[in-house]
Each structure stands twice: as C-alpha cells, then as structure tokens.
C-alpha cells in the first residue's frame, strides 16, 4: 500500500514520517516512534488507554488515522513531566493518593486529567468524574483517581494565580 508523508509536532519535537493512509495514530506513535506510553485496551474507543492531547483536545488515538494528525500539535504522557525529570503535580498526586494500580490506564488517565485541568482548573468531584468518564480503569474504582486529580488541581491553582 502506498505511503503518505506526515509531519507533526509531538512533545515539542518536529516529527516526519511516512504511513499508510489507514495507519492508526496510536500505531504510528507506538510502533514508528516508540512512544509506548499510550496503550491499546479495546477496539471500540471505549477504554481511553490511548488518550493523547491533539491540538488542545483529549482524543483517543485509536480512533484517528495518523494522516488526520498531519500538522497537529500532540502531547503524550511522555512529556507531562518536566524536561529535567521533575514529575508533574498530577503524576505526584496519583502516586501520593494511590490513583493507580496496574498502571495500564494511567498514561491515558493522566493525559486526560492534564487537559481537564487546563479546561477547568477548579473542577468539582462530579466534574472530575464526568471529565474522566471516557477513560476506564479496572483496578482502582476511581475514588483515588478523583482524589488525586482534585488535590493536584488545588496545588496547581495557586501556582497559576501567582504566575498571572
């Protein structure tokens, strides 16, 4: 099958690649670029393990062709931590509040929460629950995930206000 050239900015780096028109973005990320943080959990866009940030929106990268992401700005779990390796407040909070167990949903969950807190810096618990309802977790029962996101929001918020 003929291949198509694509260009995108992923985690701040300009990336060029050549893909079949049918190549899913998740496969391009995981197999061509070795970004194995986003995972594949289902075939039906339900589980959200493959969640990434594309042009400022959370998307499930198993439902997008790589060619559709041509020219896009993409953030994956691999660049949520600081360049110096400092964990993001969300990552710290997930650890502190036991917001993960097997870790398989975690990259998608944190990437989603990262976007959620940019869209809504002060979410209520029910807004958090609704906001992550596209991301399934089989281990935690969500309670500690909700808590981790809430605490991270509280920590990030004063910092944001100070910056302004």
């Amino acid at each position: 099958m003929s291949k198509i050239k694509v260009e995108m900015t992923i985690n701040g780096d300009k990336i060029e690649g050549s893909v079949e028109p049918r190549t899913l973005l998740i496969h391009f990320l995981r197999e061509d670029l070795n970004l194995t943080g986003p995972h594949i959990g289902c075939d039906t866009s339900h589980c959200g393990a493959c969640t990434i940030d594309l042009n400022g929106k959370s998307i499930k990268s198993c439902t997008v062709f790589a060619v559709q992401a041509n020219g896009a700005e993409i953030t994956t779990i691999e660049s949520i931590a600081g360049a110096d390796g400092t964990l993001h407040a969300l990552q710290e909070s997930f650890r502190e509040h036991h917001g993960l167990q097997c870790g398989f949903c975690t990259p998608g969950m944190i990437t989603r929460a990262h976007r959620l807190l940019q869209d809504n810096p002060n979410p209520t618990d029910s807004e958090i629950r609704y906001g992550i309802s596209g991301n399934l977790c089989r281990c935690t029962g969500y309670q500690n995930i909700v808590k981790a996101i809430r605490v991270a929001a509280e920590q990030l918020n004063p910092a944001q206000e100070a910056a302004e």
Binding site: R30, E31, N34, L35, T36, G37, P38, H39, I40, T76, I77, E78, I80, A81, L87, L90, Q91, F94, R95, E96, H98, L100, G103, F104, T106, P107, I110
Partner: peptide, 21 residues
C-alpha cells in the same frame, strides 16, 4: 508506604508485553 512502581507508570514508562519490540 507510597508505591515504588508508580514513578514509571505515571510517566508512561511501564513495559507491557505489547511494548516489546
């Protein structure tokens, strides 16, 4: 005690079978 596993999982650095190449 906080979990030692979490540093890698929260950064997408786990190594699951489909990550093996």
């Amino acid at each position: 005690r906080k979990r030692v596993e979490d540093a890698r999982f929260t950064q997408g650095k786990g190594n699951y079978v489909d990550d093996i190449k």
